[in-house]
Simulated assay, not measured.
Amino acid sequence: MNRRTRLAVLLFAVVLLGTVGTAAVLRAADRSAVRDQQQADGPTVRTGDVVLHPPGERQLLVRNLAWGPHRDEIATVPAGHPDGPRTASGVKCLRFHAAAGTGICLQAERGALADTYQAVVLDAHLRIRHRFPAPGIPTRSRVSPSGHLIAWTVFVSGDSYAGTAFSTRTAIADTRTWALDDNLEQYAVTKDGRPYHASDINIWGVTFADDTRFYATLATGGRTYLVRGDRTARTLTTLHGNVECPSLSPDGTRIAYKKRVPGASPDAPWRLYVLNLATMKETATAEHRNIDDQALWSGDDTLVYALPGDYGSDLWTVPADGSGTARRMMTSAVAPAYAG
């Protein structure tokens, strides 16, 4: 190969490398533009003041799951416009609920060897009032209608309700005194009218009626039950079978819950039902997909709940009386609560 030939080969190689590099840059720019467009097409999230006693219009608070710097922060939108711009608080929670100016935020503390968890009580401006250690992965939380009581459930082994290889721990705390019942399994259980004792009892999913009475799920012997709890008497009484993650209606007459249905896949066993507490009559909602959430009542007639979505979860809504159809209410959000 003479000198002229070598120069021609070298020049060709330089041009080829330049072309390849330019194409790579253009492809990266195209991918970046697509990502930017995807973010632009998602919900608008901005920082601002988030309060649990908002003036004026009723607000919907959620854990924001939209990608970006405010993912996992508690955010708020007008309740009547859940698809509108979100105001992010800067407070990150894994689970969240609020009522009457009190919030409960279950948080993770990332460690070098293992994560730890805590239940953080928030005031109306999302400032920390108190912290309680939580012995496992957060899964459910609720505040009583008065704001005086908070409850939370964590997995102390396992991380799913779908199978049987899990154990939960549920606690209730009084925000006036910080008195803590750190394990509701210590309450006396009455099952089918008789005192009941078993080593396999699990309790989860508290929903409050008032500052004394509450409802929850009790599991034992491979079955689940709706129980009515009494904090003063420290008792749990079974009311109805095959009830998980109960949610009491604002008028106190009905329980929304997830029910295991015959023939469903073991990995997707639940459907959303409503139980009339006076008659114990069950009503299936028009939501026919698997529900693994503790539904929230939006007024006396409508349920809000989470289903898997592109960024983790979306919020859906369905009438509580079995009519209508399910519809998506809000993308990239979970753990809803109403304020105002």
Score class of each variant (00 low, 15 high):
T177Y: 03
V206D: 00
A151Q: 07
S146Q: 04
H240D: 06
K92N: 08
P266D: 03
R131M: 14
A171S: 15
I201H: 00
A337C: 05
A151Y: 03
N64I: 08
S160C: 03
A162T: 11
A114T: 15
T235Q: 12
R58F: 02
H130E: 13
A108V: 14
S160F: 01
G222N: 07
A264N: 11
G90W: 06
W270A: 05
T232V: 12
G84M: 02
V45A: 11
G90N: 07
A119D: 04
R58K: 15
T217R: 01
A33M: 09
W178H: 15
P246A: 08
H148N: 12
G101D: 05
S247D: 01
I255L: 11
E57A: 15
E57P: 08
T116G: 11
R86H: 11
T285R: 07
C245H: 06
S249T: 02
T279C: 02
I128E: 15
V261P: 00
L126E: 08
Q118S: 15
W67T: 12
L65R: 13
D211R: 10
A295W: 09
A8C: 02
A216H: 07
V334D: 15
L26W: 03
R231K: 03
A333G: 13
A179E: 06
R260I: 14
V77T: 13
R328W: 00
